[in-house]
């Protein structure tokens, strides 16, 4: 099963994003960014199921702008702008 991961530089902004998504009925889980996605060392992000990714992107752009969006599947991560 694949997943989307929206990256943030800091935990507070990531939490704002998670709260905004949950308020809109989009489940999201906060996690630390995988090393391969953290260019400046250490970041945070939100896992979202693919079916909700577009909706999540719209909400986050409005409420808590993320850095980048990635899709993770069996092959690993690739950037997936939404």
């Amino acid at each position: 099963m694949s997943m989307y991961f929206f990256t943030y530089r800091g935990a507070t902004e990531a939490r704002r994003g998670a709260a905004a998504l949950r308020k809109s009925g989009v489940p999201a889980r906060i996690d630390r960014s995988p090393v391969q996605l953290s260019k400046s060392g250490c970041g945070y992000g939100l896992w979202v199921v693919p079916q909700k990714a577009e909706q999540a992107a719209k909400i986050l752009r409005r409420e808590a702008t993320y850095e980048r969006s990635y899709r993770m599947d069996r092959g690993g991560f690739r950037e997936a702008p939404l």
Binding site: D31, V49, M72, D73, R74
Partner: peptide, 12 residues
């Protein structure tokens, strides 16, 4: 298990 086989599914 392969690294990306199990995606994070708990998104509560």
């Amino acid at each position: 298990r392969p690294e990306f086989e199990e995606a994070v599914t708990d998104c509560r």
